[in-house]
Simulated scan of single mutants.
Amino acid sequence: MKLPRIMPRLAGIASSLILGSVLALSGAGAAHASESAAGPAYVALGDSYSSGVGAGSYDSGSGDCKRSTKAFPALWAAANAPSSFSFTACSGAKTGDVLANQLGPLNTGTGLVSLSIGGNDAGFADVMTTCVLSSDSGCLDRINQARSYVTNTLPGKLNSTYDTIRSKAPNARVVVLGYPRFYKLGGGCAAGLSETKRAAINDASALLNSVIAKQVADNGFAYADVTGTFSGHEICSSSPWLHSVNWLNIGESYHPTASGQSGGYLPAFRSAA
């Protein structure tokens, strides 16, 4: 989800701007390709959950897209030696960014495609900012707006994206990955959001995943559910694989860690690919 890039400031000063910068899943950028030798030609599309924001070890050539060598697409490619690997996922991407900026490497020879998309379209960054800064009722109101968008508008945007991917890569196996459950309820967080807010965020994430999964099935693609692999590793668990607010690197907040990429996303993708 697209995050404005700003420096964190002293507590209490411009906190909404800081939190707005926290939450990008986002962007749109150029392909990074590497040649290898054996498996299907692989193209990795999507937002920051695919580019690897939060995992560190970013490719300097990817700029604001923040593609990580520890992201699940790079890990899968290193282990499976695809005949080619094009990594166009980008921090901040919405469905429109995928269509406009990421599909160049797709062709009839593409054998495998991965994609995570939809969270930025649904306004994840603004939802989280609102929930951190406002009351329970303010948080729930904003979540209800997002739920309405996910139910009524997002399916059409996903279908348009999936249709275009299929037209450009008609022979590819396309794996669409969902998003983790964010919070362990009743967990070990002594401060932060209320349990009411955490539960509502989890429920909204589940709705988003269910809408994505339905559109994936309708289009004949494969859906990779990551809620199981992240189980026990949510925020407020004893071993979280998701950053909470990270004041040292604000843009990584609410994104998977390197362990979340290797232990959460990679196994789910590997099983579906």
Rank of each mutant, 00 (worst) to 15 (best):
L207E: 12
V150C: 00
L75S: 04
L19R: 11
G54K: 08
S134A: 12
S160G: 15
T196F: 07
A199R: 11
G192E: 05
L140W: 07
T129R: 15
G46V: 10
S231N: 14
A268N: 06
R5G: 13
L25E: 13
D126L: 11
L75T: 06
I235Y: 04
G251V: 11
A190E: 11
K70W: 09
S26I: 10
Y49T: 12
G232Y: 03
G123D: 05
I18V: 12
P82N: 05
P4D: 14
S84F: 00
A55P: 10
L207F: 02
G156P: 08
L154T: 05
A206Y: 11
A74F: 03
A93C: 01
P82L: 02
G178S: 08
G186V: 01
S62I: 06
L3K: 15
H255Q: 10
A268Y: 07
T161V: 05
A272W: 10
N144A: 15
A172H: 06
V22I: 11
L193W: 01
L10A: 15
F124V: 12
I13P: 06
I117G: 02
D218T: 11
I250G: 09
F85N: 12
A258T: 05
G119Y: 00
H255P: 00
S62F: 08
L25Q: 11
Y42H: 02
A125M: 09
T164Q: 14
A30F: 07
Y265A: 08
S238P: 01
G251C: 07
T69K: 13
K94A: 15
L25W: 10
G12S: 07
D203Y: 01
D64E: 13
F85I: 10
V176H: 09
T88H: 01
S16F: 10
T69C: 03
S48K: 02
L133S: 12
I212S: 08
A33R: 14
E195I: 03
A169C: 06
K184V: 01
G187F: 05
L266W: 00
N219V: 09
L19M: 10
S167W: 02
P256L: 02
G104S: 15
R142F: 06
C65V: 06
G109C: 06
G61I: 01
S253W: 02
T161K: 04
L140E: 14
A41V: 12
